[in-house]
Every structure is written in structure tokens, then in C-alpha cells.
Design a protein around this nucleic acid. Structure first.
Length: 655
DNA sequence: CCACACTCATTTTTT
DNA sequence: ATGAGTGTGG
């Protein structure tokens, strides 16, 4: 300690006064810039602040920005941090390499994919694409079909994802997590093998592949590993509790040369185990990197004490591996409130009412959030908010990029970029009249024989099925062909012109969808190349749906936030409403079966509660009929029911 | 071979 | 409310 202070005084003159802006633990985390470091950061303990200051500190110490790697959960998070660091220090911070594991993998693979046989580039497929590919294989295989209970393509995708992310085989996955499907094990395995082959044939990477292949390159090519890991002298990983085994291994190899690796996480906030995240990663980190220094951040700067009292009780119900006790210096405030409503609509009305009251006391709408377990939980509330003219923005749940019309338009652009893309061709062809499965199949086979989409389409001209739709598509591609230098947006505009008739005939709410597509065109404006746009769309799809019936123009950023809890990670608001805290819904009925699932639900509730700065409400409707169990759900979430009145106030409301 | 209408089962969370 | 499978008619 003594030494460090002298060092700070003598050798470098820092622009920023770290000591005045950070508490002792934070300061230690920021100034310890050599060797492996594990930060256990409780909710609201200034984790982001610490990362931001550490970036600035490293740069002030003379580390080149490009050799700092900041891996975060979403790209928005890293951009936000680097922006804050830039404000703190200067523009150099913006040059730090930052992003998600997936986008980082994409950058590396862009350079080294030829090493693993992907010589002519690749496309990244999102979840929906990978499901359609699986669906095609599934159809071929299930001539045995007629069996209704054969798993759907989405279930199959889940099984495959779980297997990869947990690093276990299909058999084990089915046994452990999908035991009711064990009778189909053979078929599932066949489909999986075919899926892998198809991906390679089409040069597709799904989300998991990005990580898998990155790891493979790091593992199997020591010279490349050396090069990459030497490049990044300092690595920081945020939300480490939500990384999986593959990601932990990637970290291990990336840090192999310099060993200046800092990971930040909170085992109590691990909420992604369904995706293979393993908070054991936090526990085993010190074994992976001997000599790891562990620092705990326990002072909470976000919430008032009454909220912390409650969340401390909640998390004490979990098996806590790194025990911590959060405290705050923020005084006063009122106890969290648990509200029973007699039906879903009175739950919504209660919230609308409270929001109106808060507005009157001067709280901005964007300082208020309503959080829920699943995307559809907010439907009734959305109607009510629309009726009241309260503007809101919804984050999480159904995604903009996954809606059919967006995917349709993107499919056109995709086959332009990669004319072998089977998934997209099917999408485009099946839109057309008189073309179904079989014809699409035939046409696709002919198209891939040619060198480009344009030539492929030209080759179809002689066929009987040549229709007006195909003629129009051919026109579009000959336009692309004749104008190779048009911008991304111009490409999109031309594609939209082609697509418009389909949009009109397919959807009766087409003006609304057209607005989405126009929105997409403005997004495209930011990109220099089509491939960059496509990669970005899949790696970081816009996560809000434009529920803009009441967008109200200019007040854009002053809107109420509706969000899934997963999407609310890391954020905070003055007031938080958690809805549907009904036993059987949250925790969900399914999670009662396995204790570890139940525990994850508890952590999820903990994450929701710790988002609140000043006021916290839990609301649940009663008398909800549950089809699965055939009973009526009436009690509050078991995570809240037994908490005493001195930590949680309770009340009832009726319409 | 395709379109359309009907049935049954199914509902998290996301890069 | 939505998707996937089935059956029928063009």
C-alpha cells in the first residue's frame, strides 16, 4: 500500500483523481493493473464506474487503447462504458477494443476462418434461421412422422444449444433436461449430425459456432493464439457470472500471454443458465489463474436501505457462494410494497394510477420501469397505457428483427450477399404465388449451380414456373448487377420496392409494418457494407419493438420502460414495478421441478428488485387459471410470501 | 403440386 | 393467440 502511494506521487502525474472518486475497494480494483483479478461486485456497487475508471487508468499509465479488450454482455454496455471513459479522460478511450464475445469472435474469425476451412467467408445465422434449417432437416427425416409428440424445431434448437453451451453430448442433454423426449434420442442425434453438416456446406455459423470456432482456433493453432493474446495486454470481462464454459476457456487462452485479466461479476445475479451460463466460472476463476486477487464491492450506491433490507433477505434464501452483505449510506425512504390485485386488469390499472401520481410529484417517465418474467406478461398493461396516452418503450420479448416482414426484407439482401443461402431463398420463394415446398426445392437447386443470385435467376427463365413474381425478382437482381456500387440503404430501398406488394397482400396491418421497414432503412444508413450490416443485425439485433401507436414524436426519450428482467440487467430506475409476482408464474410452474431452476428464478427476482433506487412495488393478480396444473393460482411468489411486514408491506386492491 | 381450412398442443428468459 | 401437422379441393 505504502509503495503504491509513492508510485502514484512520483512516477506518473494522473489527470484524474482516482482516490477522491472511488471508495477503497474500487480504488484497489482500478489501480491493480497487473495479474489476474476477480471482482465480486454486488448489485449497485459501482461496478460500471470501476470498469470505466480502470479503462482510463490503464490509458493514463500508457497502455495503448487498442491493446485493451473490454468484453461485455451487450455491445450497448461497452459503448456506454467507453463513452463514459472518454468523458472522464479523453477520446483515446473510444479506441479501446470492446464488444460482446460473439462480436469479438466474429472479428477474429473474419481474419482466421480460412484456417478452419471457411475459405470463402461465412454468414452468421440467427436463432430463427437456425430453426428453419433444423426444420428442413426435421421434415426430411420424419418420414416416420405422423408422430405428434416429436419435438418441434424450436425444441430441437434448444437441445442442440444446451449441449454445445454446457459442453455435453446430445444423449446427456436429452437425459438430463428433456427426459420426456428420450424415446426420440436416435432421431434427434441424426438431425443434429445433419444440421452440423448442412451448416458447414452452406458456410453458416450459428451463435454457438462463433464461440466454438473461436475457441478451436485458439486451442489448435498456437501461433495464432500467441499473436492474438499478445495483442491484448489487458483484458476485462463484465458480467462474468453469465459466461459459459466455452467463454471461460476463451478467456483462459486469450489471457495466456499477458495474464492481465480482470473479470467482474456477481454470483447472486446469474440468470442465464438456460443458455449454458455457469456461475461456477466465478468460483473456479482463481484456480484457473493462480495468484488471483479477489476484491469485493459491497457498498451499494443505488438503493435506499429499506430496499436493501428486503433484497438481502431474499438472496439469503439462495445458496450463496460468495456471501456478501450490501449496505448503503442513503437514508430514509419507504418500504417495498406487495400488492394483491383481484385480476390482471386491476394490476394494470394500479400501475397506471401510481405512474400518474409519480408524474405529479415530478418523476420523469423514463425514471420508471415495469419489469416482468416473460415478454407477453405486459400485454394487458400495454393496452391500458395506450388508452391513457402514456408513452412507453418495450425492451426484450418479441424482437423487432424477428418479425416476419423484417426477416423477409433481409432475406432478399442476404441472397444478394451469399447466393447459396438456402434459408433465405426459401423465404423469398415461398412468398410467391404458386410456389410451395417442392417447387422452391427445385428452384433452389438450380440457383446454386450458378455463380450468383442474378445468374441463378436467369437460369430459371426457361422453366414453366416462371411467373411475374420471379420476373420482378429477376429485375431487382439485374438492377443490383448493373449497379454494384450502390449504398446499403439504396440496396434496401430497391429490395423494399420489390417486397411491397407482398407486404400489402400478406398483412392487413401493413402500414404499421411498412413503418418498421422504413425504420430499418434508416438503420442501414449507418453501414458501409452489406456484410457488415448483416453481421450486425444478427449479432446485435435491435432489442426494442416499435410499439409506436403512441410514439408522440419529440418526447422520445421520456418514456416509461417496459422490460423483461433479463433485458433490465445492469440498469436502474427511481421506481420499479415488478408484475406477475404470482406463484406459478414467477417462479413459473416448470421451475418447481428442479431446485437449481427454482434458485435461478430467485436470483432473477433479486435482479429485478435491486434495479430500484427509491421505490419498489411487487404486484400480482389472483384467481388466474393455470391450464397446466388445472388449478387457480392465488398466492404471491413464494420468494415474497414469507417475508415479514417489517421488510415488506402488503396490501390488497379491488376494482 | 399448391392453397386453404381445420385440428391439436403449446406458451420464459437471449447472443 | 400462434404454430405445426393433416386433409381436401383446385
Amino acid at each position: 500500500m505504502q509503495k503504491k502511494i509513492e508510485f502514484e506521487k512520483s512516477s506518473v502525474n494522473f489527470q484524474i483523481s482516482y482516490k477522491e472518486n472511488l471508495n477503497p475497494s474500487q480504488l484497489e480494483a482500478v489501480t491493480c493493473t497487473k495479474g489476474p483479478l476477480l471482482i465480486i461486485a454486488g448489485a449497485g456497487s459501482g461496478k460500471t464506474r470501476t470498469l470505466v475508471y480502470r479503462v482510463a487508468r490503464l490509458i493514463e499509465e500508457g497502455v495503448s487503447p487498442a491493446s485493451i479488450l473490454l468484453l461485455t454482455f451487450t455491445r450497448k454496455a461497452s459503448q456506454e462504458m467507453l463513452k463514459r471513459a472518454s468523458l472522464l479522460l479523453d477520446g483515446r478511450c473510444g479506441k479501446v477494443s470492446g464488444g460482446t464475445f460473439h462480436s469479438f469472435a466474429n472479428t477474429v474469425l473474419g481474419k482466421y476462418a480460412p484456417q478452419i476451412g471457411y475459405t470463402e467467408g461465412y454468414s452468421i445465422i440467427d436463432r430463427a434461421d437456425s430453426e428453419s434449417l433444423i426444420g428442413m432437416i426435421r421434415k426430411e427425416i420424419s418420414k416416420i412422422s405422423g408422430n405428434r409428440s416429436f419435438p418441434r424445431k424450436s425444441t430441437l434448437a434448444n437441445i442442440f444449444g444446451t449441449a454445445v453451451n454446457k459442453g455435453i453430448c446430445i444423449e446427456e442433454t436429452v437425459e438430463d433436461y428433456y427426459n420426456h423426449l428420450i424415446i426420440f434420442l436416435d432421431e434427434i442425434e441424426v438431425i443434429y449430425e445433419k444440421y452440423k453438416i448442412e451448416k458447414i456446406r452452406h458456410k453458416f455459423f450459428d451463435y454457438d459456432d462463433l464461440l466454438v470456432y473461436l475457441l478451436r482456433i485458439l486451442k489448435e493453432f498456437p501461433d495464432i493464439r500467441k499473436k492474438i493474446s499478445a495483442k491484448y495486454s489487458h483484458i476485462m470481462v463484465d458480467e462474468f457470472q453469465d459466461t459459459n464454459k466455452i467463454q471461460a476457456e476463451i478467456i483462459y487462452f486469450l489471457a495466456s500471454e499477458n495474464r492481465n485479466i480482470m473479470v467482474v461479476g456477481d454470483d447472486s445475479q446469474s440468470i442465464y443458465s438456460f443458455r449454458g451460463a455457469n456461475f461456477e466460472n466465478i468460483m473456479t476463476f482463481p484456480d484457473l489463474f493462480p495468484g488471483t486477487k479477489v476484491i469485493k464491492l459491497e457498498e451499494n450506491y443505488r438503493s435506499i436501505q429499506p430496499i436493501l433490507n428486503l433484497t438481502n433477505i431474499m438472496i439469503s434464501m439462495a445458496e450463496n457462494r460468495y456471501p456478501k452483505h450490501l449496505f448503503t449510506k442513503i437514508k430514509g425512504g419507504s418500504k417495498p410494497l406487495l400488492v394483491e390485485a383481484d385480476c390482471e386488469n386491476s394490476q394494470s390499472l394500479f400501475i397506471v394510477n401510481e405512474i400518474k401520481k409519480l408524474k405529479k410529484t415530478g418523476i420523469a417517465l423514463n425514471e420508471i420501469a415495469v419489469l416482468f418474467r416473460a415478454g407477453f406478461h405486459s400485454f394487458d398493461l400495454e393496452l391500458e397505457l395506450n388508452g391513457e396516452g402514456l408513452p412507453f418503450i418495450k425492451v426484450g420479448g418479441f424482437r423487432f428483427a424477428e418479425s416476419a416482414h423484417i426477416k423477409d426484407l433481409i432475406a432478399i439482401i442476404k441472397v444478394f450477399s451469399n447466393h447459396r443461402d438456402k434459408i433465405s431463398w426459401y423465404r423469398i420463394l415461398l412468398l410467391m404465388d404458386r410456389i410451395g415446398q417442392k417447387t422452391a426445392d427445385r428452384l433452389y437447386k438450380k440457383i446454386v449451380e450458378e455463380k450468383s443470385a442474378y445468374e441463378g435467376l436467369t437460369a430459371l427463365k426457361s422453366l414453366k414456373v416462371w411467373t411475374q413474381d420471379l420476373e420482378r425478382l429477376w429485375n431487382l437482381f439485374s438492377f443490383f448487377n448493373a449497379n454494384p456500387l450502390i449504398s446499403v440503404t439504396q440496396t434496401g430501398e430497391a429490395a423494399l420496392e420489390y417486397y411491397l406488394p407482398f407486404l400489402k397482400s400478406k398483412y392487413d396491418n401493413y402500414p404499421k409494418r411498412l413503418k418498421d421497414l422504413e425504420q430499418l432503412l434508416t438503420i442501414m444508413d449507418r453501414f458501409k457494407s452489406i456484410n457488415q450490416f448483416l453481421a450486425d443485425m444478427t449479432l446485435e439485433p435491435p432489442n426494442t419493438s416499435f410499439n409506436d401507436s403512441f410514439s408522440m414524436g419529440a418526447t422520445d426519450n421520456n418514456r416509461l420502460i417496459l422490460s423483461t428482467i433479463h433485458s433490465a440487467k445492469g440498469l436502474e430506475w427511481h421506481t420499479v414495478f415488478v408484475i406477475w409476482t404470482l406463484n406459478g408464474r414467477f417462479p413459473s410452474v416448470q421451475s418447481f421441478r428442479q431446485p437449481e431452476n427454482l434458485e435461478e428464478e430467485l436470483r432473477l427476482m433479486y435482479v429485478a428488485a435491486t434495479r430500484a433506487k427509491k421505490r419498489l412495488f411487487f404486484i400480482y393478480p389472483t384467481n388466474i387459471y393455470d391450464k397446466i396444473s388445472g388449478t387457480f393460482l392465488n398466492s404471491p411468489s413464494c420468494f415474497l410470501e414469507d417475508i415479514q411486514e417489517n421488510a415488506l408491506e402488503k396490501c390488497f386492491i379491488n376494482r
